[in-house]
Computed example of a mutant assay.
Amino acid sequence: MPTPPEAKSPAPAVTRAAAILSLIAQEGRPLGLADIARRLDLAKSSTLNLCIALEQTGLLTRTELGYGLGRATVELGGAYVRGFDLIREFYRVCAASPVLQHELLQIAILDGTSVLYLARHEGRAPLRLSATVGDRFPATVTAVGAALLAEIDPAEVAARFADPSTLPSWTAHSTHTVEGLLAKLADTRDRGYAVDEGETNAGVYGVAVVLPPRRSGDEPLALGASLMKPSATPEYVRTVVAALREAKEQLTSPSLVVD
């Protein structure tokens, strides 16, 4: 992780504290004080003070393995997700669909060059290698990412992904060039839905549609399904896409808008 851009921050201590939380979240495990300080290029003494303050607020917890995320982060994350009205309806719609109730479904939002997963319906056979709530995946290799990026002007997409590091190759099928990404997004727009043909996981076939904002100022979300490749026959993919579109209509119905 790069050093926090303190020179541009109006509150460097807050920036450093946020960097500590982000680092531990990305690692997915507790980290020792020395490791945190080294990874963020911070003085060990100031890192200790920040960790103590974060522990006092419940944002960090200290264990014998080091500092991990505290319960307050769960409360904050839950409050953020509750701000999306349709996520509360997502689980009901999934359970009521004869097709989707059996599949692994996710809702994600675009965040820079990544997608952040906000909700997940397990279905009948959960995929352990697929993203779960709170995970970030590169937008370029996911169906939900392609669905959301296809809504953006191609020139902006090219600028956003000009840095090669934003185009990682997770499998041999991953889109890893700007030219390839723009071509994939053009196909997505023509097709009306996005696909992930083994780009995230070689054994998984993903499809996704965009959930347009229900209120002015809201950001679009994407609804995706992750299928095991052997079951992803052309006929079944069409069935799942039709079910996703039906779910989209239910989730974006004006009658569900909450003022």
Rank of each mutant, 00 (worst) to 15 (best):
P2S: 14
E6V: 15
A7P: 00
P12S: 09
P12L: 01
P12R: 04
A13M: 14
A18D: 15
A19R: 03
I24E: 05
R29V: 05
L31E: 07
R38H: 10
L40M: 04
S45K: 11
S45M: 10
E55D: 13
Q56L: 11
L59E: 12
L60S: 01
L60Y: 00
T61S: 11
E64P: 02
G66E: 02
Y67F: 15
G68H: 08
R71S: 10
A72E: 14
A72M: 12
G78F: 06
G78W: 02
A79H: 12
Y80F: 14
Y80T: 04
V81M: 09
G83W: 07
I87T: 08
E89N: 13
L100T: 06
L105R: 06
L116Y: 13
R120W: 06
S130M: 15
A131T: 11
A131W: 01
G134V: 05
G134Y: 06
R136Y: 11
F137P: 00
T142P: 09
T142S: 13
L148G: 00
L149P: 03
A150C: 05
E151H: 01
I152C: 05
P154C: 08
R160G: 02
A162I: 04
L167K: 00
T175I: 15
V178A: 09
E179S: 13
G180F: 01
L181Q: 05
L185N: 03
A186I: 01
D190N: 11
Y193C: 04
V195M: 13
D196H: 01
T200D: 12
N201P: 00
V204Y: 02
Y205P: 03
A208F: 09
A208M: 07
A208N: 08
P212I: 02
S216V: 12
A222G: 07
M228H: 14
A232F: 01
T233W: 10
Y236A: 03
E249I: 10
P254I: 06
S255G: 06
V257G: 00
V257H: 04
